[in-house]
């Protein structure tokens, strides 16, 4: 067991509303895990808690980039989002949040912000270290775009891209932060079957060649079943099932949650 992310009994309350109820989850190094559930089940809220947008009301979130091999991990509850990213967790958003004023390349370059450090003095004087850092940022961003297949759009304004390309750009941007865990929030939303297939290949490629673990929120069941090694199912904020795709596919509780009583019986 080499968990790089371990969530224990996490609860998230908004005033009187319990959005997440004592959920456990763990991801091992190199795994692709999916988080599924009907709309409003609390999946994006879950992401927001992990990435620091919300502070969980209760429970613990532990991360460890090498899978706690040395027995050490780090509790990240309540850390600010930019700090969480710097620790190696990157995410994409359910509703695309690209930087609309910027070009495709610049969007990815922003991703490199987390791994660079030039400040005011560096910006004004452009010494050797700043210059080489800038060069690194540009090169790295371009290479990521090439790998994702977006290099032809490099100088295009991000908003001008076709929808599927925009979604992939968000992934490229997240990759620039050098994460060990990538959280994808409905990456296939709005994509046609062809694009979804390409996304499937892309996610596999990211895991296989970069060794990045993936936590995926998705509604596209075909994609989920094809990619994931482990699936968590939540409904009304509670975890209702956990297992391999095969197990989940035949789990009556899951079927009931999605389709209702009659079909389950």
């Amino acid at each position: 067991m080499k968990p790089i992310l371990e969530v224990k009994s996490m609860t998230m309350d908004f005033g009187g509303l319990r959005a997440i109820d004592s959920v456990d989850l763990s991801i091992d190094k190199g795994q692709i895990v999916a988080l599924i559930g009907p709309n409003g089940a609390g999946k994006t809220t879950f992401f927001n808690c992990i990435t620091g947008i919300y502070t969980p009301t209760a429970g613990d979130i532990y991360i460890s980039s090498n899978g706690a091999a040395d027995g050490k991990n780090e509790r990240i509850n309540g850390l600010k989002p930019n700090v969480v990213t710097r620790k190696g967790l990157a995410r994409t958003f359910q509703n695309i949040r690209l930087f609309t004023s910027m070009t495709v390349l610049e969007n990815v370059m922003i991703g490199c912000h987390a791994i660079t450090k030039a400040g005011i003095m560096g910006a004004i004087f452009r010494g050797a270290s700043t210059k080489s850092e800038e060069k690194l940022i540009v090169e790295k961003s371009y290479l990521i775009l090439e790998k994702i297949g977006l290099s032809k759009y490099v100088d295009e304004l991000a908003v001008n891209l076709p929808y599927g390309a925009q979604r992939r750009l968000e992934i490229a941007r997240a990759l620039a932060t050098d994460p060990f865990l990538l959280l994808l929030d409905e990456p296939a939303a709005g994509m046609n079957p062809q694009e979804t297939m390409e996304l499937d290949e892309l996610i596999l490629k990211i895991r296989n060649s970069e060794g990045i673990s993936i936590l995926l929120i998705e509604h596209d069941m075909k994609l989920v079943m094809s990619l994931s090694e482990k699936i968590y199912v939540v409904d009304y904020g509670k975890k209702i099932a956990e297992g391999t795709p095969e197990e989940i596919r035949h789990n009556p509780v899951v079927i009931k949650a999605y389709l209702g009583e009659e079909v389950a019986s």
Binding site: T51, I53, K80, P81, N82, T85, R86, A90, R91, F93, R97, L98, F99, T100, S101, M102, E106, M109, I110, G111, H113, A114, I115, T116, A118, G119, I120, G122, A123, I124, R126, T130, E133, E134, I137, R173, A174, A176, T177
Partner: peptide, 27 residues
């Protein structure tokens, strides 16, 4: 110089989308 630097880009990112820019490590 500021505009075309890491800081300048961070400013524009912040202007475009505060949440996303934080998610990219911008303080």
């Amino acid at each position: 110089r500021l505009k075309n630097s890491r800081i300048g880009r961070a400013w524009v990112a912040l202007k475009d989308d505060e949440i996303a820019s934080q998610a990219m490590g911008i303080d």
